[in-house]
Write a protein that binds this DNA or RNA. Structure first.
Lengths: 140, 140
DNA sequence: TCTTGATCCTCTAGTCGCTAGAGCATGTAG
DNA sequence: CTACATGCTCTAGCGACTAGAGGATCAAGA
């Protein structure tokens, strides 16, 4: 029922076929059902899970962090304290990423704007990420 | 003048010593001056550059993208058109990252909030990143 | 001054997260 | 029933580090 081949999953998620098999091998994806001829057979839930993994990776989360977030999703009935600790720590990580990206965005935007009327006066891309990051890092 | 050893640079940036040498080998950092005894001798500019590289990597930018941003910074006098194309493409990438992180942040925050009064009802972490990502991907 | 421990050097090899390819089996369309 | 796409497993390669061996150099104390 609703059996999706690995190739279709790949096309729908943008995750390459060998990568899907790799995620299975490291436990990010459950081992799927197999057809009579031993082919992997997925469902919609796996497609969503895979999309999540892909974009979380693109956002710079490590496989371990993704595993934790997925575990949270797999067992929403687990203890509040546990969820809270894990979720809060990721919240902090997410906030830091957003803050840094926003600073970088501002600076790159400034370069685009300046480029519109003449030449770029100076580039402070390094400063904006470097210093901001340093300050965030200090209070770690 | 203002000579900083690789170890100090490492401590100040949080980038490991071998990684600093690696960045030099792949051209992200210029080959620094050497002391009489062949030791690398850095200045403050390199420390800032390194901090930028580190945090850009943590934000999920590839080494090639970082190289482009650094080039922009190294030669701010280059043609407007060139800067514009590069900067705009990174702007789009940055905006996409911010949008996804914001969606994820919202959902993780909801989990923390719900956890405060009882158990977590359900986890939509996968949905929020997965679907949002899919929609962003469609219009590529 | 001598020594001892930290820091540096280069070079090689290992890890993580994929990614590509060989060699073979199975599915599907004409 | 061919032919070609798609699937399987397994091994090897790549990007971006990371750790370790083996050896030189520096800095501080006896």
């Amino acid at each position: 029922m609703n059996a999706i081949s690995i190739g279709v999953v790949s096309r729908e998620t943008g995750v390459k076929v060998p990568t899907i098999r790799y995620y299975e091998s490291v436990g990010l994806l459950p081992s799927p059902e197999r057809t009579d001829s031993n082919r992997r057979s997925y469902d919609d839930a796996t497609v969503r899970r895979l999309r999540f993994i892909r974009h979380a990776r693109e956002l710079g989360f490590e496989v371990d962090a993704i595993r934790q977030l997925l575990d949270l999703s797999d067992q929403p009935e687990r203890s509040c304290a546990e969820v809270d600790v894990i979720a809060r720590s990721h919240l902090a990580e997410i906030d830091e990423k957003i803050a840094r990206l926003t600073a970088l965005r501002f600076e790159v935007q400034r370069m685009v704007d300046e480029g519109e009327h003449g030449r770029v006066a100076q580039c402070r891309v390094i400063e904006v990420l470097g210093d901001h990051a340093a300050c965030l890092h200090e209070r770690h």
